[in-house]
Design a binder for these strands. Structure first.
Lengths: 347, 347
DNA sequence: TTGAAAGCGCTAACAT
DNA sequence: ATGTTAGCGCTTTCAA
């Protein structure tokens, strides 16, 4: 239980061998008889020996440390999932994560990256919480870096993002399969890849199923509950209202529930709704539960680290440099067949 | 811009001085003429010199690194705020945070703590995402540690938690001030400090305002939207229904909104609701916006680090060892005066 | 006023 | 099969 400063030479002394033998015994280097190795390992354990990573890092030019740089970690409910994915994958490689946060402040960011670099991180995950284009700070050019939920024009950086168009297709196809043909889209007004790709995915999926794209069924707003409420209300007050709403994200979907309530429509009997995000706290809390397409936050974290590992330890040759992760559907209770009004037309 | 391995001796060579002089110039030690110091600093900057923290840490027995150990970081929407508070405070002290996550798995946790210790962290923040009692892993006894949103029987550890009873009092008093006298409570069924203190706070506040505590107005359930919905429905179906609901957290409050909708009651005209948490994504998304008491997540993160700093650099003498942080009210739109029915009685 | 050198704890090339 | 030792980059004591 003695954990006050037992170093490798204490172990060596206790075992009556040299530090080399101890080092080899513990890290599997050299060629020594199994017996010696076991004995040394035992003694090390008894003494509570734990290698000093500062020392080995200094010696090996490898800190076993990865920097995780993110924007608005505080305001994004799924930040935790991303960090967890990265952290668990890191632990599996005996790495530890140094988490740093630049709330989109370029100056702060560059200072934090400098700190990371001083700590000799072996690599960096440069993460965004919403899929977007980024310009990567130039200092990162000198160290293995992977972009998470972000893309750069600079092709030196590998990246991992959600398959946005695929997510939209999954949602729309699910609605199609339930029998809907008038499917509205609550779009995000922001000019970011997520918004563009999901809209494209929505249109393409309708078309590829032989359905017309009615632009009047697309309502654009800010990606919040309030935005969703407004956008959905506009759609629901039309003469030929949609029987289903696909929403840019779960928060807009929450707004759609509210709009439905205001319009005296009940979900999913009168109106089906599908979101994107699978924010447990929203999707699982809405009543009835929201069927939604999950964004692979945990997986992006995990994959970013795996990619970094491959890059650092070689063997990254045949990995894709830009990965789009699949987004699975999570069924809850917000989708039903369209209501039947006379002549099969919703009124 | 050369950032490939410029070490202190490169700077020394470039400046035509010894490494000692460089070290002194940069870290303010020794006594050298201001001119030399400035000159060396300039050259260091030009060369893009950045000290290797592994080396200085090894030499100083101080890694400038803090371990942040948390449970369910992934499933808790406010984890980000806690981490951010800690990270920003850490940066202010030129520390970097190593974030590690043990999803309540004791084995995993002890392995991660071991890793942190190997990296020679100068201190540890042992954080929980919900205020609870914890038994701190014994290894942490040997290193400065502060508990965040957690309390231990072991008094060696300092801690920071929200003032739960105060939060409840704030909520109830706000409702009282709006004119309510029949205030129900949606309680959390779990046996944790948060649940106990908030319930106590609710009761005490009513009593201290001369109001009776009607146990029939307390409805207990799981701290989720579904739990809140059930608990609220039970209360709202009583002959003498409460005119206001104080909820254990924002998720239960969301359930209360749903129950109100089911009962044909409108918020806040027919029913006032107050939550706890100030989960932006819930409180800001509900319609109308939820008035709630904010839990000081960011502040706990910040304070934990400050406490650690005091402990490590001395001068912690007159700081409180166990801090309860204030929880401020965040007004939105879910509270109004009670409805007037004949004889002033809600029906 | 400045510099040489020891040493933080570890690894590994080189001896023995 | 095992040990000696240099050196990772830095700080700091001690000497010049």
């Amino acid at each position: 239980m003695r954990n006050i400063r037992v170093g490798i030479k204490d172990v060596a002394a206790a075992a009556g061998v040299s530090v080399t033998t101890v080092s080899h015994s513990l890290s599997g280097g050299g060629v020594l008889p199994e017996a010696t190795r076991k004995r040394v390992q035992l003694i090390a354990r008894e003494l509570g020996y734990a290698p000093n990573r500062l020392a080995s890092g200094l010696r090996n030019q490898r800190s076993q440390t990865i920097g995780f740089v993110s924007d608005e970690i505080a305001t994004t409910p799924f930040a935790g999932a991303v960090v967890l994915g990265a952290q668990e994958a890191a632990a599996a490689h005996d790495w530890v994560l140094m988490v740093v946060n630049s709330n989109l402040d370029v100056d702060l960011e560059s200072r934090e990256i400098r700190a990371l670099l001083q700590h000799q991180v072996d690599g960096i995950v440069y993460a965004r919480m919403y899929h977007q284009k980024v310009v990567v700070p130039p200092t990162l050019g000198s160290i293995p870096t992977v972009l998470l939920d972000a893309e750069s024009d600079d092709d030196r950086f590998t990246s991992v993002v959600p398959d946005e168009a695929g997510a939209a297709a999954t949602a729309v196809e699910y609605l199609l399969r339930a029998g809907h043909t008038r499917i509205g889209y609550l779009a995000n007004q922001d000019d970011i890849p997520a918004a563009i790709s999901r809209l494209t995915g929505y249109r393409d999926t309708l078309r590829s199923h032989g359905l017309p794209v009615d632009e009047a069924l697309i309502s654009t707003a800010s990606p919040s509950a309030a935005g969703g409420r407004t956008a959905a209300s506009a759609l629901l007050s039309r003469a030929e209202r949609p029987t289903a709403l696909f929403c840019f994200n779960d928060q807009m979907a929450m707004g759609a529930y509210q709009a439905a309530g205001l319009a005296g429509l009940s979900v999913p009997v009168d109106l089906s709704i599908v979101g994107i995000d699978n924010l447990e706290i929203i999707a699982g809390s809405l009543f009835p539960g929201l069927t939604t397409v999950a964004l692979p936050h945990y997986e992006m974290g995990r994959w970013a680290i795996e990619r970094l590992h491959a890059e650092i330890h070689g063997g990254a040759a045949n990995d894709p440099r830009h990965l789009k992760l699949h987004c699975p559907l999570v069924e809850r209770s917000s989708v039903a067949p369209p209501p039947i009004t006379r002549a099969g037309q919703p009124h």
